[in-house]
Design a protein around this nucleic acid. Structure first.
Lengths: 214, 214
DNA sequence: CCATTAATGTGAATAATGATACAATAATCG
DNA sequence: CGATTATTGTATCATTATTCACATTAATGG
């Protein structure tokens, strides 16, 4: 299963979750396609490749589909743990974000190098000095970190996270981090989210003549 | 020039900007490749397709390269305007973000439906009630909006932005917005950034056996 | 000034992706 | 119960993106 497909499957899963909570029991490929912003053919193809079959002319049963997709995505009942490194405005906004829970994600702690931030008791999750990353990560069994530190601190932060045993990073800094193969042969997963870059792309697409969007 | 390539070119441009500010004058394809997280072959291919040529064994001259890439990306001296719709924690964090300016982006206003937010004078940019989107957009000549409203308000907000004449949207809500062809034939550009989805993907990749990342 | 090295530039091969078309099947309706 | 319609499932095709391989050029060093 390739990367694009993981994104689509995750999207399908979230959409199904919402449809189910509206009381729906069945769904057609083209419904999912519309909601996920892809073609119906690709939805059917995805399911076909995953050996998921619906009923001819009857679509797919939502609960069954969710079970299968969930098992492919490795969904469990327990919440996945993440830490947030860098408790500036963006980091703190994410700490307060209540939407993670419905997607099975829990922010277990924040970290910052500034004492006025980690000594401030008014955070929705515990905030520690960055020196404590390693022990909190181990204690809380956390594998994934969100990085919201300033650009200049990004490289150091990444190194620190690697030595603390973090295996996945969602990086919001404008420095592009790269997946690194660790000494033990495992690869660290890195996703970079660059907001200014997204905006620049949008401006480019607006200004450019050929629109081949989605 | 396709989508992926726009992303890469924009990345190259930002990296060059940083290298230049460190005093560098030349750059090799593999340097750019490393910093952008791609292969050197693709950097050379990109430049080749854009008719950008370096010196054999000498690499590329940074100022010249930036001029060319800048003109391809439509970079100008004046700042590109964006508005932020939804001034919750994430919206406000973006309003305070100082990194946009160095990428030629300026947040001209925020909007919220909650009077206690738009009546609060302590924002780094003016914040108005959502009813004023249309006139502020027109007055300030803004084409792009960042959407940071709650999930339930997303669809309405999108409609309102379209009627206000917005042409590009960066959507942070978990509802996937789709590019819509408007009555006048132009297409609205939409980019969706879904933080929970990114995390879910990371968890999937960690759990899945085959690592084919980047 | 020749041999070696380090880079660029690009055609061809390969791989990945998505679209198309249509057969297969089930439901519906007269 | 036959005709029609709606939908799935997939084989094939077309396109795009990426890597590979290597010719080309320039610099370096003995």
């Amino acid at each position: 299963m390739n990367n694009e497909m993981v994104i689509r499957i995750t999207r399908y899963y979230r959409i199904l979750n919402r449809l189910r909570s509206l009381g729906l029991e069945k769904v057609f490929a083209h419904n999912l396609a519309d909601a996920a912003g892809v073609s119906a053919a690709i939805v059917r193809k995805d399911f076909s490749l995953l050996s998921i079959y619906g009923q001819k002319r009857g679509g797919y049963e939502i609960p069954e589909l969710m079970t299968k997709l969930g098992s492919i995505l490795g969904k469990t009942d327990k919440l996945e743990h993440v830490i947030i490194v860098g408790c500036g405005r963006i980091g703190r906004a994410l700490m307060h974000y209540t939407g993670f829970e419905q997607d099975g994600i829990k922010v277990v702690a924040g970290f910052d190098s500034d004492p006025s931030i980690y000594n401030d008791p008014n955070h929705p999750v515990p905030v520690y000095p960055t020196s404590r990353i390693e022990d909190v990560v181990k204690e809380s069994d956390t594998k994934v970190a969100i990085v919201t530190v300033p650009e200049t601190a990004t490289a150091d932060t990444f190194q620190r996270l690697l030595s603390a045993g973090i295996q996945g990073v969602l990086n919001f800094s404008p420095i592009t981090l790269k997946p690194i193969k660790k000494a033990d042969g495992t690869q660290v997963i890195v996703h970079n989210v660059n907001i200014a870059l997204e905006l620049e792309q949008i401006f480019y697409e607006l200004q450019s003549p050929n629109i081949l969007q989605q």
